[in-house]
Design a protein around this nucleic acid. Sequence first.
DNA 1: GCGTACTGCAACCCATAGGTTGCAGGCGCG
DNA 2: CGCGCCTGCAACCTATGGGTTGCAGTACGC
Lengths: 116, 116
Amino acid sequence: MTATLPVVCAALGDPTRWEILTRLGEGPMSASALARVLPVSRQAIGKHLEVLREVGLVESEQRGREVVYLAVGARLGALARELDRIGRSWETRLLRIKELAERPGPAASEAPEASD
Amino acid sequence: MTATLPVVCAALGDPTRWEILTRLGEGPMSASALARVLPVSRQAIGKHLEVLREVGLVESEQRGREVVYLAVGARLGALARELDRIGRSWETRLLRIKELAERPGPAASEAPEASD
DNA sequence: GCGTACTGCAACCCATAGGTTGCAGGCGCG
DNA sequence: CGCGCCTGCAACCTATGGGTTGCAGTACGC
């Protein structure tokens, strides 16, 4: 999956797409079926499904004469892991900076004294 | 934080905002400082920072005459946990459906009549 | 074999998100 | 004390994303 982080997040940034994903999370559905339960046209649904498919959040499967889509939980899990990793790195650097700021003397040995 | 999932994801769906977040993840910066290193105007940066602040991804702090912003890793972590939970639920239901489909005998205890 | 329902493609519309410029106010530094 | 930098607010522009309608093709069920 070459879909970059902002792209995947953008795909998840639309309420209608979350509606679609929620429905697909409960079981496979076709675009027409989705259009029946959601307040948008089948064509709009189709565009959303295409976006979601490009970032790997849904997969399509030809079933008879219709095409059913299903939500790929693993993709969401992968994204979650990436975000978590980045979040942790932010906090780590933040802590390091605070340490430096609050440490008056440049005794830069690794003595993680929690003198808060 | 009342920011709904699609809203937070939308905030993360813009490349420029990721640039900002990345810089802020390395240490606190002011809007002007960000505008100096990024190819957009200070005002544009300001709008992005406002969006990020509304969903809790950055926090601001008055430091002397300037306002510095810093990335909130915990928020990203919280989002990651939510996404992971949802992803898992999708996979669980998927497995259940596949089980039902591949189980020839209706030996299921609660078989909610799939009469389609 | 016919009609029906599903799909794919294209043109078009409109709101808004992302960006810019311009200006006015204030706090710090030299 | 005055200059400079940083902030906040507002008006404005434009591309694009989300949506619609319409049409043509095709496979399924009866």
